[in-house]
Amino acid sequence: MTTRWTRKDLLGLRELSADEINFVLETADAFKQVGTREIKKVPALRGKTLVNFFVEPSTRTRTSFELAAFRLSADVINISATTSSLTKGETLKDTARNLEALHTDILVLRHSSAGAPQFLANRVRASVINAGDGAHEHPTQALLDLYTIRERRGKIAGLHVAIIGDVLFSRVARSNIFGLLKLGARVTLVGPSTLVPREFEKLGVEVSHKIEDVLPKADVVNLLRIQHERQRREYFPGLGEYIRLFGLTKERAKLLKPDCVIMHPGPINRGVEIDSDVADGLQSVILDQVTNGLAVRMAVLYLCGGIAT
Protein backbone atom coordinates (compact mmCIF):
# COMPACT_ATOMS: atom_id res chain seq x y z
CA MET A 1 0.00 0.00 0.00
CA THR A 2 1.87 3.05 -1.22
CA THR A 3 -0.93 5.63 -1.08
CA ARG A 4 -0.39 8.64 1.12
CA TRP A 5 -3.23 10.49 2.77
CA THR A 6 -2.88 14.24 2.28
CA ARG A 7 -6.44 15.53 2.69
CA LYS A 8 -7.52 17.66 5.62
CA ASP A 9 -11.17 17.34 4.56
CA LEU A 10 -13.47 14.53 3.56
CA LEU A 11 -16.17 16.12 1.43
CA GLY A 12 -17.29 13.25 -0.77
CA LEU A 13 -16.30 10.07 -2.52
CA ARG A 14 -16.43 11.63 -5.97
CA GLU A 15 -13.14 13.41 -5.25
CA LEU A 16 -11.35 10.32 -3.87
CA SER A 17 -9.31 7.87 -5.94
CA ALA A 18 -9.82 4.13 -5.64
CA ASP A 19 -6.46 3.95 -3.85
CA GLU A 20 -7.56 6.54 -1.32
CA ILE A 21 -10.82 4.71 -0.66
CA ASN A 22 -8.94 1.46 -0.13
CA PHE A 23 -6.51 3.26 2.15
CA VAL A 24 -9.37 4.41 4.38
CA LEU A 25 -10.85 0.90 4.43
CA GLU A 26 -7.51 -0.64 5.43
CA THR A 27 -7.00 2.00 8.11
CA ALA A 28 -10.51 1.16 9.36
CA ASP A 29 -9.39 -2.48 9.75
CA ALA A 30 -6.87 -1.32 12.37
CA PHE A 31 -9.46 0.76 14.19
CA LYS A 32 -12.05 -1.99 14.12
CA GLN A 33 -9.60 -4.09 16.13
CA VAL A 34 -9.48 -1.37 18.82
CA GLY A 35 -13.18 -2.02 19.48
CA THR A 36 -12.32 -5.55 20.66
CA ARG A 37 -9.77 -4.41 23.26
CA GLU A 38 -10.35 -4.20 26.97
CA ILE A 39 -9.68 -0.45 26.78
CA LYS A 40 -11.38 0.73 23.59
CA LYS A 41 -9.59 4.02 23.46
CA VAL A 42 -6.35 5.19 21.86
CA PRO A 43 -4.59 8.53 22.31
CA ALA A 44 -4.29 9.34 18.60
CA LEU A 45 -6.25 12.61 18.70
CA ARG A 46 -5.55 13.54 22.32
CA GLY A 47 -5.79 17.30 22.76
CA LYS A 48 -7.79 17.81 19.56
CA THR A 49 -11.23 19.37 19.64
CA LEU A 50 -13.99 18.05 17.43
CA VAL A 51 -17.27 19.85 16.86
CA ASN A 52 -20.27 17.85 15.71
CA PHE A 53 -22.11 20.63 13.90
CA PHE A 54 -25.49 19.25 12.87
CA VAL A 55 -27.68 21.76 11.09
CA GLU A 56 -30.10 18.95 10.22
CA PRO A 57 -31.31 16.48 12.81
CA SER A 58 -29.58 13.11 13.05
CA THR A 59 -29.05 10.84 15.99
CA ARG A 60 -27.20 7.83 14.68
CA THR A 61 -24.60 9.58 12.54
CA ARG A 62 -23.90 12.13 15.25
CA THR A 63 -23.60 9.43 17.90
CA SER A 64 -21.28 7.39 15.72
CA PHE A 65 -18.98 10.36 15.12
CA GLU A 66 -19.11 11.25 18.80
CA LEU A 67 -18.13 7.77 19.90
CA ALA A 68 -15.42 7.58 17.24
CA ALA A 69 -13.99 10.84 18.53
CA PHE A 70 -14.11 9.63 22.15
CA ARG A 71 -12.25 6.47 21.19
CA LEU A 72 -9.54 8.61 19.61
CA SER A 73 -9.33 10.72 22.81
CA ALA A 74 -10.55 13.90 21.13
CA ASP A 75 -12.71 16.40 23.01
CA VAL A 76 -16.21 16.67 21.54
CA ILE A 77 -18.80 19.40 21.44
CA ASN A 78 -22.22 18.81 19.89
CA ILE A 79 -24.04 21.70 18.28
CA SER A 80 -27.42 21.12 16.68
CA ALA A 81 -29.59 23.43 14.63
CA THR A 82 -31.88 24.17 17.53
CA THR A 83 -29.05 25.28 19.82
CA SER A 84 -27.02 26.98 17.11
CA SER A 85 -27.31 30.64 16.33
CA LEU A 86 -28.14 29.82 12.70
CA THR A 87 -31.73 30.08 13.80
CA LYS A 88 -30.98 33.62 14.98
CA GLY A 89 -29.86 34.63 11.51
CA GLU A 90 -26.11 34.13 11.84
CA THR A 91 -24.61 32.87 8.60
CA LEU A 92 -22.95 29.49 8.30
CA LYS A 93 -19.67 31.24 7.60
CA ASP A 94 -19.84 33.33 10.76
CA THR A 95 -20.79 30.35 12.88
CA ALA A 96 -17.86 28.38 11.50
CA ARG A 97 -15.46 31.24 12.13
CA ASN A 98 -16.64 31.45 15.70
CA LEU A 99 -16.03 27.73 16.16
CA GLU A 100 -12.60 28.19 14.69
CA ALA A 101 -11.86 31.04 17.07
CA LEU A 102 -12.37 28.44 19.81
CA HIS A 103 -9.56 26.39 18.23
CA THR A 104 -11.72 23.67 16.77
CA ASP A 105 -9.55 21.14 14.94
CA ILE A 106 -12.21 19.01 13.28
CA LEU A 107 -15.63 20.15 12.13
CA VAL A 108 -18.13 17.38 11.37
CA LEU A 109 -20.95 19.01 9.41
CA ARG A 110 -24.43 17.74 8.66
CA HIS A 111 -26.37 20.21 6.56
CA SER A 112 -29.52 20.25 4.46
CA SER A 113 -27.83 22.17 1.65
CA ALA A 114 -25.64 20.39 -0.91
CA GLY A 115 -22.14 21.81 -0.99
CA ALA A 116 -22.20 23.30 2.52
CA PRO A 117 -19.16 21.26 3.69
CA GLN A 118 -17.15 22.38 0.68
CA PHE A 119 -18.19 25.95 1.38
CA LEU A 120 -16.81 25.66 4.91
CA ALA A 121 -13.68 23.74 3.93
CA ASN A 122 -12.70 26.62 1.66
CA ARG A 123 -13.03 29.07 4.52
CA VAL A 124 -11.70 27.47 7.71
CA ARG A 125 -8.39 25.90 8.70
CA ALA A 126 -10.06 23.08 10.60
CA SER A 127 -10.62 19.70 8.98
CA VAL A 128 -14.13 19.49 7.60
CA ILE A 129 -15.83 16.10 7.52
CA ASN A 130 -19.06 15.83 5.58
CA ALA A 131 -21.66 13.99 7.65
CA GLY A 132 -24.25 14.39 4.90
CA ASP A 133 -25.07 17.45 2.80
CA GLY A 134 -28.51 17.72 1.23
CA ALA A 135 -28.95 15.12 -1.49
CA HIS A 136 -25.28 15.39 -2.40
CA GLU A 137 -22.92 13.09 -0.49
CA HIS A 138 -22.65 11.13 2.74
CA PRO A 139 -19.11 9.82 2.37
CA THR A 140 -18.69 8.05 5.72
CA GLN A 141 -21.94 6.12 5.20
CA ALA A 142 -20.73 4.95 1.79
CA LEU A 143 -17.32 4.06 3.20
CA LEU A 144 -18.90 1.93 5.90
CA ASP A 145 -21.12 0.31 3.29
CA LEU A 146 -18.06 -0.48 1.19
CA TYR A 147 -16.25 -1.77 4.26
CA THR A 148 -19.17 -4.03 5.14
CA ILE A 149 -19.45 -5.40 1.60
CA ARG A 150 -15.71 -6.09 1.51
CA GLU A 151 -15.86 -7.74 4.92
CA ARG A 152 -18.74 -10.02 3.91
CA ARG A 153 -17.81 -10.75 0.31
CA GLY A 154 -14.02 -10.39 0.45
CA LYS A 155 -13.97 -7.97 -2.45
CA ILE A 156 -15.94 -5.27 -4.21
CA ALA A 157 -14.75 -5.42 -7.81
CA GLY A 158 -17.09 -7.44 -9.97
CA LEU A 159 -19.98 -7.50 -7.49
CA HIS A 160 -23.44 -6.46 -8.62
CA VAL A 161 -24.95 -4.00 -6.15
CA ALA A 162 -28.60 -2.97 -6.28
CA ILE A 163 -29.51 0.34 -4.63
CA ILE A 164 -33.26 0.44 -4.09
CA GLY A 165 -35.55 3.31 -3.16
CA ASP A 166 -35.54 7.09 -3.08
CA VAL A 167 -32.34 7.57 -5.06
CA LEU A 168 -33.13 11.08 -6.33
CA PHE A 169 -33.06 12.63 -2.87
CA SER A 170 -30.45 10.29 -1.39
CA ARG A 171 -26.95 11.38 -0.52
CA VAL A 172 -26.26 7.81 0.59
CA ALA A 173 -27.04 6.61 -2.92
CA ARG A 174 -24.79 9.15 -4.61
CA SER A 175 -21.77 8.45 -2.40
CA ASN A 176 -22.33 4.71 -2.81
CA ILE A 177 -22.53 5.07 -6.60
CA PHE A 178 -19.25 7.00 -6.75
CA GLY A 179 -17.43 4.60 -4.40
CA LEU A 180 -18.77 1.38 -5.89
CA LEU A 181 -17.97 2.41 -9.46
CA LYS A 182 -14.44 3.48 -8.51
CA LEU A 183 -13.85 0.09 -6.90
CA GLY A 184 -15.15 -1.78 -9.91
CA ALA A 185 -18.63 -2.88 -8.87
CA ARG A 186 -21.65 -2.95 -11.15
CA VAL A 187 -24.51 -0.81 -9.85
CA THR A 188 -28.22 -1.00 -10.63
CA LEU A 189 -30.61 1.58 -9.23
CA VAL A 190 -34.15 0.39 -8.57
CA GLY A 191 -37.22 2.43 -7.77
CA PRO A 192 -40.13 4.37 -9.19
CA SER A 193 -39.27 6.37 -12.33
CA THR A 194 -39.95 9.58 -10.42
CA LEU A 195 -37.35 8.80 -7.75
CA VAL A 196 -34.88 7.02 -10.05
CA PRO A 197 -34.83 9.14 -13.20
CA ARG A 198 -33.00 7.86 -16.26
CA GLU A 199 -30.54 10.76 -15.99
CA PHE A 200 -28.64 8.57 -13.50
CA GLU A 201 -27.54 6.30 -16.34
CA LYS A 202 -25.11 9.05 -17.36
CA LEU A 203 -23.27 8.41 -14.09
CA GLY A 204 -22.39 4.92 -15.29
CA VAL A 205 -25.06 2.89 -13.51
CA GLU A 206 -28.05 0.90 -14.73
CA VAL A 207 -31.61 1.90 -13.91
CA SER A 208 -34.49 -0.53 -13.41
CA HIS A 209 -38.09 0.00 -12.40
CA LYS A 210 -38.80 -3.70 -11.85
CA ILE A 211 -37.37 -5.05 -8.61
CA GLU A 212 -38.06 -8.70 -9.51
CA ASP A 213 -35.69 -8.44 -12.47
CA VAL A 214 -32.83 -7.22 -10.32
CA LEU A 215 -33.06 -9.21 -7.07
CA PRO A 216 -31.99 -12.61 -8.53
CA LYS A 217 -28.83 -11.07 -10.01
CA ALA A 218 -27.72 -8.95 -7.07
CA ASP A 219 -24.77 -9.76 -4.81
CA VAL A 220 -25.64 -6.87 -2.52
CA VAL A 221 -28.97 -5.13 -1.97
CA ASN A 222 -28.79 -1.70 -0.36
CA LEU A 223 -32.21 -0.40 0.64
CA LEU A 224 -32.70 3.31 1.09
CA ARG A 225 -35.06 4.74 3.62
CA ILE A 226 -38.30 5.94 2.08
CA GLN A 227 -38.77 9.43 3.41
CA HIS A 228 -42.48 9.46 3.94
CA GLU A 229 -42.16 12.09 6.64
CA ARG A 230 -41.22 14.60 3.94
CA GLN A 231 -43.48 15.84 1.21
CA ARG A 232 -43.12 13.31 -1.54
CA ARG A 233 -46.70 13.11 -2.70
CA GLU A 234 -45.87 14.23 -6.20
CA TYR A 235 -43.21 11.51 -6.52
CA PHE A 236 -45.17 8.38 -5.61
CA PRO A 237 -48.80 7.76 -4.85
CA GLY A 238 -48.37 6.31 -1.38
CA LEU A 239 -46.61 3.82 0.86
CA GLY A 240 -49.02 1.02 0.04
CA GLU A 241 -48.26 1.24 -3.63
CA TYR A 242 -44.54 1.61 -2.94
CA ILE A 243 -44.53 -1.62 -0.92
CA ARG A 244 -46.53 -3.39 -3.64
CA LEU A 245 -44.05 -2.39 -6.35
CA PHE A 246 -40.69 -2.01 -4.60
CA GLY A 247 -40.78 -3.29 -1.02
CA LEU A 248 -38.37 -6.11 -0.11
CA THR A 249 -41.09 -8.43 1.14
CA LYS A 250 -40.54 -11.96 2.41
CA GLU A 251 -41.71 -13.34 -0.92
CA ARG A 252 -39.37 -11.15 -2.92
CA ALA A 253 -36.47 -11.96 -0.59
CA LYS A 254 -36.76 -15.55 -1.82
CA LEU A 255 -35.58 -14.32 -5.21
CA LEU A 256 -32.22 -13.35 -3.73
CA LYS A 257 -29.11 -15.47 -4.14
CA PRO A 258 -28.29 -17.28 -0.88
CA ASP A 259 -25.10 -15.27 -0.38
CA CYS A 260 -26.65 -11.91 -1.25
CA VAL A 261 -26.05 -9.33 1.45
CA ILE A 262 -28.88 -7.03 2.56
CA MET A 263 -27.93 -3.54 3.73
CA HIS A 264 -29.80 -0.50 5.00
CA PRO A 265 -28.35 2.80 6.21
CA GLY A 266 -31.10 3.13 8.84
CA PRO A 267 -33.28 4.04 10.46
CA ILE A 268 -35.42 1.25 9.02
CA ASN A 269 -39.10 1.63 8.23
CA ARG A 270 -40.07 -1.94 9.08
CA GLY A 271 -42.72 -3.16 6.71
CA VAL A 272 -42.10 -0.38 4.19
CA GLU A 273 -38.87 -0.67 2.24
CA ILE A 274 -38.05 -3.95 3.97
CA ASP A 275 -40.08 -6.63 5.68
CA SER A 276 -39.35 -6.91 9.38
CA ASP A 277 -38.28 -10.59 9.20
CA VAL A 278 -35.97 -9.88 6.27
CA ALA A 279 -34.33 -7.01 8.16
CA ASP A 280 -33.53 -9.40 11.01
CA GLY A 281 -32.62 -12.37 8.77
CA LEU A 282 -29.32 -14.08 8.21
CA GLN A 283 -28.55 -12.16 5.03
CA SER A 284 -28.98 -8.81 6.79
CA VAL A 285 -25.79 -6.99 7.80
CA ILE A 286 -27.57 -3.91 9.09
CA LEU A 287 -26.01 -4.11 12.56
CA ASP A 288 -22.56 -4.86 11.11
CA GLN A 289 -22.93 -1.60 9.25
CA VAL A 290 -23.39 0.23 12.54
CA THR A 291 -20.31 -1.41 14.09
CA ASN A 292 -18.23 -0.80 10.99
CA GLY A 293 -19.42 2.80 10.86
CA LEU A 294 -17.56 3.43 14.09
CA ALA A 295 -14.31 1.97 12.73
CA VAL A 296 -14.62 3.84 9.44
CA ARG A 297 -15.31 7.14 11.20
CA MET A 298 -12.34 6.59 13.53
CA ALA A 299 -10.19 6.04 10.45
CA VAL A 300 -11.52 9.17 8.74
CA LEU A 301 -11.08 11.34 11.84
CA TYR A 302 -7.59 9.94 12.39
CA LEU A 303 -6.54 10.54 8.78
CA CYS A 304 -8.07 13.99 8.26
CA GLY A 305 -7.58 15.23 11.81
CA GLY A 306 -4.12 13.77 12.23
CA ILE A 307 -2.22 15.41 9.44
CA ALA A 308 -0.46 18.69 10.09
CA THR A 309 -2.38 21.64 8.65
Partner: peptide
Protein backbone atom coordinates in the same frame (compact mmCIF):
# COMPACT_ATOMS: atom_id res chain seq x y z
CA UNK B 1 -26.37 15.66 -15.50
CA UNK B 2 -24.83 18.03 -12.97
CA UNK B 3 -27.93 18.44 -10.81
CA UNK B 4 -28.21 14.65 -10.73
CA UNK B 5 -24.55 14.24 -9.83
CA UNK B 6 -24.47 16.95 -7.18
CA UNK B 7 -27.92 16.34 -5.70
CA UNK B 8 -28.91 19.96 -6.18
Amino acid sequence: YWSTLLGL
